[in-house]
């Protein structure tokens, strides 16, 4: 009981922050799972999970397009493609069940301190309308 109450409190406080940041007004279930999985796998010093689905031709509140920014020293000594594969593997379940696009930005604590720029996502060109799933 107490647990469920504190959860509601957590969600509410998040709503307030996120409302000003994105067009969806609550953190989605998938978004929360992605955040938890990345936190568990990489113990990141900085983590951003952005639901960018609203930028695409999908119904309101969809959780199909995400961008993640993961800063962790677990990426040290790994090539960029290896770093991205580590993130993809962590989220493989979500990627095979509904998450349609995942933009990944990885960095080590050191490289993030030097350059914390994140490439903005490209605008949608309507491809989802032409797809069967």
């Amino acid at each position: 009981m107490l647990n469920s109450f504190s959860r509601v409190g957590y969600r509410l406080s998040n709503n307030i922050i996120y409302r000003s940041m994105s067009s969806t007004n609550s953190k989605g279930r998938v978004e929360q799972i992605i955040e938890n999985k990345l936190r568990d796998s990489f113990s990141p010093s900085h983590l951003e999970v952005l639901n960018e689905s609203y930028m695409h031709s999908v119904p309101k509140g969809s959780e199909t397009h995400f961008k993640v920014v993961v800063v962790s020293d677990m990426f040290k000594g790994k090539s960029l493609i290896e770093q991205h594969r580590m993130v993809n593997n962590t989220l493989s379940e979500q990627l095979s069940s509904g998450v349609h696009a995942l933009s990944v930005k990885t960095a080590t604590v050191e490289s993030w301190a030097k350059n914390s720029s994140v490439q903005p996502s490209p605008s949608c060109l309507g491809g989802m309308k032409n797809e069967k799933k």
């Binding site: 996502s121 605008s123 949608c124 060109l125 491809g127 032409n130």
Partner: peptide
């Protein structure tokens, strides 16, 4: 899509 008409921002 195609190079002349990409159907997704990432492909573009």
């Amino acid at each position: 899509g195609t190079p002349e008409r990409p159907m997704c921002g990432f492909s573009n």
